[in-house]
Simulated assay, not measured.
Amino acid sequence: MNDEAEFIALIDLVYAAALEGNLWPSVLAKLADVVGTMQAIIATMDRRANTFDSISRRTYPELDASYKSYWAFHNPLWINSGTQPVGKLYSFDTLMDRQDFAKTPIFNEWWKKADYGFAMLAANLMSENNVSALICMVNDPKHEAPTPRQIRLFEAAIRHIVRAVRIHRQLWTSDLGHDTTPERFENIRQAAIMVDAVGHTLYANTAARALLDAGDGLVIKSGCLASKDGPFRLQQLIASCAPGVGPLRGPFGGQFEVRRGLNRAPLKVAVTPMRPKTPVVEIPWLGLRAPVAMVTVVDPEIDRAILTRGLHRRFNLTAAEARLAAEIVKGDGREAAARRRGISVATARAQLSSIFEKTGTHRQAELVPLLLDIADKGATECWDS
């Protein structure tokens, strides 16, 4: 076949891979043959979970394993490639000076062992939600630069490959169903985190990102969601939501509390299984990891703070009265509320009388429903803002 016929066959295979994910390795083999290069790679850096994955035409098991576990995170080319627009062709020299790269540990301890040269061409395939993917071709060290023919054919193929990857990701996401879309997660009032079977964070809504950034109870550890007072309970509940695990084999999601130290209210954590409409296959080298669970977190301290602010604005309660009312809403009586506030029962009685007068209520049975309504509306307003 001539160059044109070979190229057409490559593009046909590219769009077939958009529908059949197992064809992507064949795409790389065909691309390498058409362009005339030693190596072709699709690689993805998933910064949500601090993981790297790839597929390639040629594989070197030991080198591949060391790159995925270590060198990918110590490769200056990855950092520099992130500034390139999706679909734009770039070369090695676009990213870094060759002499500077030759001084790096990755060049001397990995690059040369892989028999890679500096004659490299690449393009970013996608970059969104802290996931970036690229495709590249690499010649052996005997070639100083890609040939004009390689540049022409690789650049012509890139726009089709970018489009096919976008189609593939869209189809894959649609198979998951509406319940897993980021838009739905942002509409959840409490902190909500979507995770895969090992706890990698796939998406966190605004409230969850604030919680994780603060490191207050839940954290990201080694790329996985963990609780600061011990990760095992959370990991067990997440793992129980994976396909093939059900009630007959143990727990199926569940709830627990995360302790946060003396005089701190624990976080209330719920792990709920997620099931796509149809079975999906993970494609980690395109950043496509199947969600298995939704982790939601309620912080009672935030809820009480919202209620306290709402009571002050609406009824002009003093700070002390508002804090007592926030404890009264738990419904276990004046004495228990006073004990948690660290005040005497007599002081609580006096503050409660003032609360009744300002809110227009006469007893706790009337006050508690009013407080619950204000707490719910206040949380909604806080979330909307």
Score class of each variant (00 low, 15 high):
Glu155Arg: 15
Tyr90Thr: 05
Lys142Thr: 11
Asn129Met: 09
Pro85Glu: 04
Glu155Pro: 07
Gly82Phe: 06
Ala119Trp: 01
Arg152Pro: 00
Ala157Thr: 11
Leu125Trp: 08
Leu95Lys: 08
Ala145His: 13
Glu155Gly: 14
Gly117Arg: 05
Leu89Thr: 05
Ser91Trp: 05
Ile158His: 09
Pro141Gln: 02
Lys88Asn: 14
Gln150Val: 00
Gly87Pro: 00
Ile151Lys: 14
Ala102Ile: 08
Asp97Pro: 03
Glu144Ala: 15
Ala122Gln: 08
Glu144Tyr: 02
Trp110Thr: 06
Ser132Gly: 10
Ala133Phe: 11
Pro105Gly: 03
Glu155Ala: 15
Tyr90Cys: 11
Glu128Leu: 10
Ala145Arg: 13
Tyr116His: 08
Lys112Thr: 13
Thr147Asn: 02
Trp111Val: 11
His143Trp: 14
Asp97Trp: 07
Val86Phe: 11
Leu125Ile: 07
Gly82Met: 12
Ile79Glu: 14
Ala114Pro: 00
Leu89Ala: 00
Val86Met: 09
Glu155His: 13
Lys113Thr: 06
Phe101Leu: 10
Tyr90His: 07
Ser127Leu: 10
Gln150Ser: 04
Asn139Glu: 15
Val131Ala: 11
Phe107Lys: 11
Thr147Glu: 09
Lys113His: 07
Tyr116Met: 07
Phe92Glu: 04
Glu109Trp: 06
Ala133Val: 10
Thr83Lys: 12
Lys103Pro: 03
Asp93Gln: 05
Pro85Asp: 01
Val138Arg: 05
Phe154Thr: 12
Phe154Lys: 12
Met137Val: 15
Asp100Trp: 00
Thr94Asp: 02
Met126Trp: 03
Asp97Lys: 06
Cys136Lys: 10
Thr104Trp: 04
Ala145Cys: 08
Tyr116Phe: 06
Phe107Cys: 15
Val138Gln: 09
Ile79Val: 13
Ile151Glu: 11
Lys88Arg: 14
Ile106Asn: 04
Ala145Leu: 11
Lys142Ser: 15
Arg149Gln: 07
Leu153Ser: 07
Ser132Ile: 13
Arg98Ile: 02
Ala123Ser: 14
Asn130Thr: 03
Gln84Cys: 10
Gly87Asp: 02
Pro141Asn: 03
Cys136Asn: 12
Glu128Lys: 13
Ala145Asp: 06
Met120Arg: 09
Trp110Gln: 04
Thr83Glu: 12
Lys112Arg: 10
Ile106His: 01
Glu144Gln: 13
Leu153Val: 15
Thr104Glu: 14
Thr83Arg: 13
Cys136Gly: 09
Asp100Thr: 14
Ala157Asn: 09
Ala156Ser: 12
Trp110Arg: 01
Gln150Leu: 00
Val138Lys: 07
Lys113Tyr: 06
Leu95Ala: 02
Gln99Cys: 01
Ser91Phe: 03
Arg152Asp: 05
Ala123Ile: 03
Leu121Lys: 00
Pro85Val: 01
Lys88Ala: 11
Asp115Val: 03
Pro105His: 00
Thr147Arg: 05
Asp93His: 00
Phe92Gln: 07
Ser91Leu: 01
